[in-house]
Design a protein around this nucleic acid. Structure first.
Length: 265
DNA sequence: CGTGTTTGACCTGCGC
DNA sequence: GCGCAGGTCAAACACG
């Protein structure tokens, strides 16, 4: 996976008016054009400063993504051994665990999960993902803080792993079908393996509730499949498709512009 | 008293 | 069909 992907995000949320484009034109004009007056230059300089700052942050983000990518590759190598535990001779497991067809991309999972051909035929699994979380190895609690509220409904010691597996249901919404299984990695007791099944039918809890460990240290892995699009593209795409993010950014930018116009008038 | 956890019993699917 | 093992249920229990 190449990391030379441009992280410049098209934040245009209104294609008809396309304010970002007009802003760029103005930037180019101002940056190469003649200075009009010192007072009028101030907002321009301010905006250029802002632009440089954003470029700097952009660069930092790319560096961060490179680090994350490295960690991701390390984890993929390190925990590929965990697949052994999933090849039980008993119940077939969902494609997350042993199906080569499994690709989780934008919420799309392999068809064998949707068909209900395996597993419980009563409910179809709409989405399955696997998450590794590094915790204190002395921590015996099988808790993955992911911002959602979970109710434990069972615990079982499995054959291939001395660590018990805990079963949770999402209790944030009464009818939410999402379940998760949490078990320590057989190779590394300091790593919890959480398998999420299903899709939340309620809104995601506020970001404040999402702990640091998930926001910075978790790698989500769709096992045994190569990820065909880069993480950078995914993240950029996620951000640009997030209405609240683009709206907040647009509000901030337009707010700045309006402030300067008012100052000039 | 309400809510969440624990844990043994039970159910279900798969391999032999 | 049987046995094994994963998954779920529900009564008992703990805690605030």
């Amino acid at each position: 996976m190449s990391m030379d992907t441009n992280l410049d995000i098209d934040l245009n949320i209104n294609p008809e008016q396309n304010p970002s484009k007009t802003m760029n034109v103005e930037f180019e004009k101002e940056s190469v054009g003649e200075s009009k007056s010192s007072t009028k230059d101030e907002p321009v300089h301010f905006l250029i400063q802002q632009l440089n700052r954003m470029k700097f942050e952009n660069k930092k983000l790319i560096e961060l993504l490179n680090i994350l990518q490295g960690n991701y590759n390390d984890l993929m190598q390190k925990y590929s051994g965990d697949e052994v535990l999933l090849k039980s001779r008993k119940r077939k497991v969902h494609c997350t665990e042993n199906c080569d067809n499994f690709v989780e991309k934008n919420g799309i999972t392999c068809s064998c999960c949707h068909e209900g051909s395996i597993g419980t035929p009563k409910e179809s699994v709409s989405n399955v993902s696997k998450v590794y979380v590094r915790v204190d190895s002395s921590d015996m609690s099988l808790v993955v803080k992911d911002g959602y509220q979970w109710r434990k409904y069972g615990q079982k010691v499995t054959r291939d792993n001395p660590s018990p597996r805990a079963y949770y249901k999402c209790s944030l919404a009464p009818a939410c079908p999402v379940k998760k299984k949490v078990q320590k990695s057989v190779n590394d007791p300091s790593v919890l393996v959480a398998i999420y099944e299903g899709k939340h039918n309620h809104k995601i809890p506020s970001e404040d509730e999402i702990p640091i460990e998930l926001s910075k240290g978790v790698t989500e892995i769709s096992s045994s499949s190569s990820i065909s699009i880069s993480m950078v593209d995914q993240m950029a795409s996620t951000l640009t498709r997030n209405p609240s993010f683009t709206a907040a950014l647009a509000a901030a930018i337009t707010g700045r512009i309006l402030d300067h116009e008012i100052e000039e008038n």
